[in-house]
Design a binder for these strands. Structure first.
Lengths: 191, 191
DNA sequence: GACATATTAGGACGGTCGCCCTAATTTTGA
DNA sequence: TCAAAATTAGGGCGACCGTCCTAATATGTC
């Protein structure tokens, strides 16, 4: 990774490995090996594994906020913007089928580990929820915006989980289409 | 646990701990301590950790089959029976909010670990899917029974994941109600 | 050029892991 | 009744874990 500091490389590699192998199953040695540094050097940048996890969560929050802002520019209508969210399931299809949803699987794992960073990881979920809620409000669903946001979030999570379990591309397409129709219907009701 | 063999106690304790703490995060020592036996004794019953996992998966398959059969007796119509499935989200509310769905979280973890038992664990999903598919067929939805089954499975997974993340009881109720209405609509269309 | 700081490598620490062995005890059954 | 089998306890093995230390090198900074 050219033009990146060692710390950045560590966090980005940890981000990927935590997603692909899980937090607990990823060791200092794994990350150090992939970055190409010694474990001693590693310790200089991050004192504990928890510190890396926090950095990874912060990075994901930053990247997610950037993505949401991008969608606000891409999508002209709130409906378009929400559709951007739905389409992640297609965009990230391959990775989702292999590793599930990065947010959902991390939160699940941290919940089982009783890990202190669980609350931080959950901010990824609330970030999506609040953004979706905002879009639904802009769509004219002031009353039930948050419920709609939670519903959409849940549907996406479910699709990701089953896509991971069944490796079924057709299923993803069908559910994405159903979600698009559901969204359009909610928009139509509001108008 | 009176009237249970040591092997049974081990498998049942492992079943619970794998659910609550995750497979990897549960050690031989954890299980042995909860059962109240030594690690040496443990080894006599199960040579490897994989063997325990296989036994746990087998137990879950057996328990699930028993539950499905029970539902076939409880529910008089296919719609009633599918509603039994939906209602697990209410029945197991507390545990789901704390640990997520036992099937979904196990499959997710094994997928990340690249564990050989992943295919076996997935049989839990296919068991539910096939049973639901059968019920939808009995409901008169021969054409799209499997899609409906997958859809319902996904919705349940999503609800479980978000219930675990947000600890929101109201959300579960709302989604269960929505699922019930969705089911009723599918039944109505068939009739 | 000299000195402080930042970065790096490599190894060692205590602890826990899954796994395995042996020996004692209990249970079984011919 | 008594030997075989099943069950149990307890300890130990090598490997890996997160963590930490020291020493060497690189990078400024005056």
């Amino acid at each position: 990774m050219p033009g990146k500091t060692t710390s950045e490389q560590i966090v980005e590699t940890a981000d990927r490995l935590f997603y692909e192998k899980g937090y607990e199953h990823t060791s200092f040695a794994d990350i150090a090996a992939e970055v190409g540094i010694s474990r001693g050097n590693f310790y200089h940048h991050f004192k504990t594994k928890d510190a890396i996890l926090n950095a990874v969560i912060d990075l994901r929050l930053i990247n997610t906020r950037a993505m949401l802002e991008q969608w606000e520019q891409d999508g002209q209508t709130p409906e378009d913007r929400i559709r951007c969210f739905i389409r992640i399931l297609i965009t990230n299809q391959t990775k989702i089928m292999e590793y599930g949803c990065p947010v959902g699987t991390l939160v699940s794992e941290l919940a089982k580990l009783n890990h202190a960073a669980l609350a931080d990881a959950n901010r990824l979920f609330t970030l999506f929820r609040d953004w979706l809620s905002l879009q639904f409000k802009a769509l004219g669903r002031e009353e039930d915006a948050e419920e709609l946001a939670m519903h959409l979030l849940a549907r996406s999570q479910g699709v990701a989980t089953l896509a991971n379990a069944f490796h079924d591309e057709t299923f993803i397409r069908a559910e994405v289409d159903a979600l698009s129709m559901w969204l359009h219907e909610r928009a139509r009701e509001a108008a």
